[in-house]
């Protein structure tokens, strides 16, 4: 009974489906995505910049559209769009009278509008459009994986180098400036990391659902630890488990992968909140 249950769960042979390239890629993508979510998502949650990440992810759609129009990889084209919108939101709210939420709203809708326009201008039909809006983890290519891997590396190295600074400015920006942390510049760098993780996530859950993966694993984990490093680690693990679970369910029941992953995360959040309350 034991070994059989592991190999054959839900009527599908695990070994057999792992022989499919797209399934292998999807599993690797789940792990790569969870690293970005776990680390950057933790900062997003503790800095309360969830909606900045939402603004960046929707602005990314402009880049995807431009990629279509110019015939380059849409995810690649999203990188400069994400970085520009991250810096835009940060600088506009810091240097002008425009408030942060207004800057988010403007870039959010401008990005979507630009994307729709670019795609309309592209010759022919854009069949994958839906997958960029809502994700399609089963369509992750080897090139996508390599790019996600390098973006993860950039995120990990940056956080390793600036861990103390990011913690200090997240906790108390003003005090961190008084003790000499270049908080303004590093806050913009942190927003750039959010932009990069949005890029990592787009292929898996799409621009509309990115916010869920950036927030839910960290919010779940936050109930169980208040050590930042442990929190990042726990969020990564949580993200990986539930992403794979969502992927599995979507495969089993032929559901949209991105939406299933997000709903699994949502359900886990509700369950973990109840657990944390009754502890």
């Amino acid at each position: 009974m034991g070994p059989y249950r592991i190999v054959c769960w839900g009527g599908i042979n695990v070994i057999e489906i792992l022989q499919y390239e797209f399934m292998k890629n999807a599993l690797i993508a789940s792990v790569l995505v969870s690293v970005a979510c776990g680390i950057v998502g933790t900062y997003v949650v503790i800095n309360r910049i969830v909606f900045i990440s939402g603004g960046i992810s929707h602005a990314a759609f402009g880049g995807i559209g431009l990629g279509y129009l110019l015939g380059v990889n849409p995810i690649l084209a999203a990188v400069p769009f994400c970085i520009a919108s991250a810096l835009g939101i940060g600088l506009i709210s810091e240097r002008t009278d425009v408030s942060e939420d207004a800057a988010i709203g403007v870039l959010w809708s401008l990005g979507m509008a630009a994307g729709i326009l670019f795609i309309g201008l592209s010759p022919g039909y854009a069949p994958n459009l839906f997958s960029y809006l809502f994700g399609s983890i089963l369509a992750v290519s080897s090139f996508d994986l390599v790019m996600m891997f390098f973006l993860d590396i950039i995120i990990i190295v940056t956080v390793f180098v600036f861990f103390r600074e990011f913690l200090a400015l997240s906790f108390d920006k003003e005090f961190s400036m008084v003790v000499g942390v270049p908080a303004r510049k590093l806050y913009l760098l942190l927003l750039c990391l959010v932009a990069l993780s949005v890029v990592v996530l787009i292929k898996v859950v799409g621009v509309m659902l990115v916010m869920a993966l950036l927030t839910i694993p960290a919010v779940i984990s936050r109930q169980f630890t208040y050590n930042l490093k442990k929190l990042m680690f726990l969020s990564t693990i949580t993200g990986a488990i539930f992403t794979v679970m969502g992927l599995w369910l979507s495969y089993l029941y032929n559901l949209a992968s991105g939406a299933t992953i997000v709903l699994v995360l949502g359900a886990s959040f509700v369950l973990s909140s109840l657990m944390a309350k009754t502890r």
Binding site: I46, S170, F171, Y226, N227, L231
Partner: peptide, 9 residues
């Protein structure tokens, strides 16, 4: 000026 849920000892 501080969030009481902030994860720090």
């Amino acid at each position: 000026s501080f969030d009481s849920g902030f994860p720090i000892s």
